[in-house]
């Protein structure tokens, strides 16, 4: 989202402008790939011990804060359950008990349809996770350097005073699915900016930190630092909760992309060019 250089107009109304630079596009899709594989291999790793705790260890005398499992139901049939802070939910078919690729019921926390690898295979899931953790971290560092150097972060993401003053209106607009038109559509709106900044500067650093806190070797780098996150098992819980928040962010992100012009957004993240309608229709290219 940078240069205002306009591309040659195409046949339809509106005009294309250069919204996403090549580095941003490459880093965006690298992120899509690595976050997807990190999430799916992470769920496979979680399946090896589908319980989350708060504290320095798992065996503190307190029950897990979250547990996904299966047990015999009252009628003798197997039941999948999810227990959060002692409240149990029947999640048969999805969590705890679900059908595998061959259709048979599996007692597994997250179903094999959303894990990498599909079948239970902890060591291979760790291989995937740690490889793409590196891809993700290096990509993130590259983004930070690029964002600072090119001014992308300051120019496109940092909210201005008028942005912040208009936050109430922006919330209303989002609720009504009204998206900025014309010139206004060339900039990120304030909620978008704040969401991106929260992800880039809060959630992502925190999930990386919580990941490091699970490494027994890195725990020794600065004695006691893991306790700042509540201990290793708390860090594991934080890691999981942030993964859920990031998944929610992606869901909202994809939803907003779809409702505000899927093909226009997709094109701009692939070729760089985004169509802005001068008239007042939304920017979707139809």
């Amino acid at each position: 989202m940078s240069d205002t250089a306009t591309a040659p107009n195409t046949a339809s109304a509106g005009r294309l402008y250069y919204r996403h630079t090549l580095p941003v596009r490459v880093m965006h899709w690298t992120n899509v790939l690595s976050l997807t594989l990190l999430l799916m291999s992470g769920l496979q790793i979680f399946n090896a011990h589908p319980r989350l705790y708060w504290g320095k260890s798992s065996y503190t005398g307190n029950p897990p804060v979250l547990e996904i499992g299966s047990r015999q139901g009252s009628g003798g049939q197997p039941v999948g359950f999810t227990r959060i802070f002692g409240h149990e939910f029947d999640t048969t078919g999805v969590l705890g008990l679900s059908s595998g690729s061959n259709g048979s019921l599996q007692r597994v926390a997250f179903p094999s349809a959303v894990t990498v690898p599909g079948p239970y295979w902890l060591s291979m899931a760790r291989n995937w996770h740690f490889f793409f953790a590196w891809v993700f971290v290096l990509n993130g560092l590259a983004y930070l350097f690029y964002g600072l150097w090119s001014g992308h972060l300051r120019r496109d993401l940092w909210p201005t005073r008028p942005d912040l003053a208009g936050i109430g209106r922006s919330i209303l607009d989002h609720i009504r699915f009204r998206h900025p038109q014309g010139e206004a559509a060339r900039r990120y709106n304030v909620l978008q900016k704040l969401a991106y900044l929260a992800v880039i500067f809060v959630l992502l650093p925190l999930i990386i930190l919580a990941g490091w806190a699970m490494s027994p070797w890195l725990d020794g780098v600065w004695p006691g630092w893991v306790d700042l996150l509540g201990g290793r098992q708390s860090a594991r819980t934080v890691h999981f909760v942030i993964a859920c928040l990031l998944t929610a962010f992606v869901a909202v992100h994809v939803f907003e992309v779809i409702v505000s012009g899927l093909w226009n957004h997709l094109r701009s993240m692939i070729t760089g060019y985004y169509r802005v309608n001068e008239g007042g229709h939304d920017g979707s290219a139809r």
């Binding site: 291989n127 995937w128 996770h129 740690f130 490889f131 793409f132 953790a133 590196w134 490494s215 027994p216 070797w217 890195l218 725990d219 020794g220 780098v221 004695p223 006691g224 893991v226």
Partner: peptide, 24 residues
Amino acid sequence: QVLSLGERLSSAVHQTLAAKAMAQ
């Protein structure tokens, strides 16, 4: 040849950062 790069990188960085660190 590909995924194991992660382990090798982690190991190399850990050895550089904290070869002699003490566990908590």
